[in-house]
Write a protein that binds this DNA or RNA. Sequence first.
DNA 1: TTAAAACGTTAGAAATTCATAAAATGGACA
DNA 2: TGTCCATTTTATGAATTTCTAACGTTTTAA
Lengths: 225, 225
Amino acid sequence: MSDITVLVVDDEVRMRKLIKDFLMQKGYGILEAGDGEEALSVFEENCNKIKLILLDVMMPKLDGWSVLRQIRQSSKVPIIMLTARGEEQDELFGFELGVDEYISKPFSPKILVARVEAILKRTSPELKELKDYGGIVIDTEGRTVTVDGKQIEMSLREYELLKYLADNEGIALSRDKILNNVWNYDYYGDSRTIDSHIKKIRHKIGKKGKYIQTIRGIGYKFEIK
Amino acid sequence: MSDITVLVVDDEVRMRKLIKDFLMQKGYGILEAGDGEEALSVFEENCNKIKLILLDVMMPKLDGWSVLRQIRQSSKVPIIMLTARGEEQDELFGFELGVDEYISKPFSPKILVARVEAILKRTSPELKELKDYGGIVIDTEGRTVTVDGKQIEMSLREYELLKYLADNEGIALSRDKILNNVWNYDYYGDSRTIDSHIKKIRHKIGKKGKYIQTIRGIGYKFEIK
DNA sequence: TTAAAACGTTAGAAATTCATAAAATGGACA
DNA sequence: TGTCCATTTTATGAATTTCTAACGTTTTAA
């Protein structure tokens, strides 16, 4: 289950349903609104979940431009405007207000999905499985670590250890806990081996090595400071 | 008071009451639903408050799986499925739909509470274990002590001792008790070593050092005044 | 008032713990 | 088999923490 939610705002139920069907098929969560006012209240309630808004221009009560302007006062969430043919003259005006894309009706579902995915890919880090811990970027898919834009070569244990620490940011982890999670649960060796790896990681990530704090008598803690 | 609310969905009133009692004791707010349809409408009304759903599988009108699927269209709120024994074969299927845990009936309340707390801990940041003792804030996860917003460096014993005293706020603790709890039970040394640490703690927490009272002839007591 | 007891404070010794480097181990692969 | 590399272990010194013992101060009770 993806944790990406798209808000679809259109006064036509059939249009909403159409968009919903295609995006849900791609695994996105969908929220709907039938007019501008509803859009604002739905967005307010779910602003942390909503990663993209598809916004029709022509709507009763409150039109798309007004909704756009309101939302932009508090959020930079990507917005795609849905326009009817012949409304192109507004585009320039819209980009200044922070519109990310236009799709003009009627559109092919393929195009819609493609544009949505393109935008989400560049704006939603969780889609890339990239996590940024204060400049230390961990790509769990590619199993790579990048510090200040420079990729760092890491061995298996180093990577796993760093990831475990970073995933538990702010939590002091005992040596036992670390061994049980990064090594096999029945690991039999010296817990000093952790120190050894910590040393190498700290060295490799340079200045950011100080994010890995030593908790004397306990273990280590990752903390961005 | 925590503003964490749990939605309990089960068709048996007694079951709901049981779960409710235990979770309310832990300080969570409870909402109830007696069938799948009610569950959906209650969730819709309170989706921003509800931080976890306990969902029975077998219910009239709309079963747990359908409710799960519906809710997953708009939300990734953690869901624990309550299954009768022998329904395990569905588990794999459920995880794909975003089930976070299974608990099979009959269950011990202890397990229920433990699982609920484990999930909430990792999904609700507002639940972070910060305890404020009159301006002395102890973060048990991060193992840090903050006094009036300023973090204080503490050694292992100092931290453990302060935490032990604070956890037993208002209770006079004998030296023996302190030694047995903060030091190893087979500690062999002088109990005056406590005084030494108390002195350092008092100094480190400055004005708030007066919270640690000396109980002559007995030991010490933490009291906010 | 005074001695005894309990606690506060201090400084330094002792013990623990960690960082580091370097050597040993062990597995993968040519 | 030998080489390479990741990993683990070991050794050493440094840093920190903990403990102790001694002395000072306060409280208690005779």
